[in-house]
Design a binder for these strands. Structure first.
Length: 441
RNA sequence: GUGGCUGUAGCUCAGCUGGUAGAGCACCGGGUUGUGGUCCCGGGUGUCGUGGGUUCAAGUCCCAUCAGUCACCCCA
């Protein structure tokens, strides 16, 4: 069999990356649970009609089909792999509404699939870490304040470059455009969202062409989009534009609350950035995009927002707010640039050296004694020269090698070379060496 | 889905106008009958992405195909 070629868009990290990913997920999980989010895993597939409720995305859904299906039968199973965790979550909430306690807060860390052309940070299979809070009928705005703080705690617990979250509020924009007298505020949001890509002049052009905006209206839209402040002072600048609308006032109020809470609990995290839109039309309140310092070109590594109509059936409605961390996107960039790595490529903390084949049973007993106390231990694969055995450990980043001998056990820290006699029943490695850790490269 | 670029050793790549493959790093063995990293010596580990064509001869030229990659589209 010839050597398999890598399949682009389906990342598989090397052992060090695997350890990093595991630790990242563990850190996120710990932080989410610290805030009371309950663990949730949903199935990998959803009925196509669930997945396509938002339209325009059908091409990117991987559809399931049995190989055994009749070759002439073009139909599929009607099932597709989920492309995010919000849609499955909304479905889960509706399906189990009668059995859940509201407000319901959950976290969900699972792979997602999209049939896109892969590029850096855009994969066909990728890991997402979501937190969402949904309530029945109405969702208090303070949850829109809480979520970014959870994310900040989670991301800042990792040795990542600085993260900045840009926030805006749909009500603010929509109210502003309505107050301005534009015919289609949602379309205006979509056009203004392109400002970083096509520039202010082209945005003004499209506003005029598509919405029939006057010069003054287009100018006002650009003026709003330019506003970006690290504190609540954006409110004054919005007011200075002289547009009045009740929805606008609500939006400003909500955004001020988000920004001020973040200033207290996570200084430097948030920027009010009134050009942030997010592509989706289901957002109805705060919207979030997050950038990694030095990797802004990668796009947002954590996005989300408030949605009022995603999970609703008949007269039941479950408004929610959620944020989703693109774990694969972050790791792909940072592992690729060696800005993030693990202290070792295996869980092993101690390698027990094997003096000769006859002593393997003794070595196994020594290893078991260490394992019983939670110290990950393996016995050397073969009774090679000690130099070789030490190199086996060194290649993997295993910090300690234990040498069993006639007069007791010695343990060597192969980084410093320090070697001392120990009692295997009580010896304990330094806490930071017990498990592999993530370190900035 | 559209367009550009690229496929040679584990990795990064060289190989001029065609003459049956090379460097650095990595890796393996030895120097060092039992405590690594430095140093010295030795070793090439390859269907030149795949298939076809031109030619006495193809890594090199032509066609096709696959894959990778970047950009566009889209971004839940």
């Amino acid at each position: 069999m010839s050597k398999p070629t890598p399949l682009s868009g389906f990342p598989e990290w090397l052992p060090a990356g695997q350890i990093v990913e595991r630790q990242v997920v563990e850190t996120l999980r710990r932080t989410f649970e610290l805030y009371g989010f309950a663990p949730l895993t949903t199935r990998a597939v959803e009925p196509m009609d669930q997945l396509l409720r938002k339209g325009e995305t059908s091409k990117e859904v991987y559809v399931l089909r049995r190989l055994q299906a009749d070759a002439d039968d073009p139909s599929d199973s009607g099932l597709g792999l989920h492309f995010d965790l919000t849609v499955p979550f909304a479905r889960y909430v509706l399906e189990n509404a009668g059995k859940l306690q509201f407000p319901f807060r959950r976290y969900q860390i699972q792979p997602c699939w999209r049939g896109e052309r892969p590029q850096e940070g855009r994969y066909r299979e990728f890991l997402q870490a979501d937190i969402d809070i949904v309530d029945r009928d109405t969702l208090p705005a303070h949850y829109e304040v809480e979520l970014p703080l959870v994310i900040a705690d989670a991301l800042r617990a990792l040795p990542l470059p600085a993260v900045t979250m840009h926030v805006n509020n749909r009500k603010l924009c929509q109210g502003f455009y309505t107050g301005l007298g534009l015919s289609d505020p949602m379309e205006a949001i979509r056009i203004v969202d392109k400002i970083d890509k096509i520039g202010p002049a082209a945005v003004a052009e499209q506003l005029t062409a598509v919405l029939g905006a006057s010069d003054a209206q287009a100018k006002a839209c650009l003026a709003l989009a330019e506003i970006s402040t690290p504190d609540a002072s954006f409110a004054d600048r919005v007011a200075a534009l002289g547009v009045t609308d009740p929805l606008l006032d609500t939006g400003v109020e909500e955004l001020v609350a988000v920004v001020e809470a973040a200033a207290e609990h996570a200084p430097g995290l948030l920027v009010a950035d009134l050009k942030i839109a997010r592509g989706l039309d289901y957002y109805t309140g705060t919207v979030y995009e997050t950038f990694l310092a030095g990797s802004e070109s990668l796009g947002s590594i954590c996005s989300g927002g408030r949605y009022d109509n995603l999970a609703s059936s008949g007269d039941e409605s479950y408004p929610g707010v959620g944020l989703s961390i693109g774990v694969s996107r972050i790791l792909g960039r940072l592992l690729g640039r060696e800005e993030l790595t693990a202290t070792r490529t295996v869980p092993t903390c101690v390698l027990v050296a094997l003096p000769n084949d006859e002593s393997r049973a003794d070595c196994d007993r020594l290893a078991m004694a260490l394992r019983r106390r939670g110290i990950a231990t393996e016995v050397a694969p073969a009774a090679q020269k000690y130099g070789k055995q030490i190199r086996f450990a060194q290649r993997r980043g295993i910090p300690f090698v234990a040498f069993p001998g006639e007069d007791g056990v010695q343990i060597r820290d192969i980084r410093s070379g320090e070697q001392v006699p120990v009692d295997p029943a009580t010896w304990q490695p330094p806490a930071e060496d017990l498990h592999p850790r993530i370190v900035a490269g």
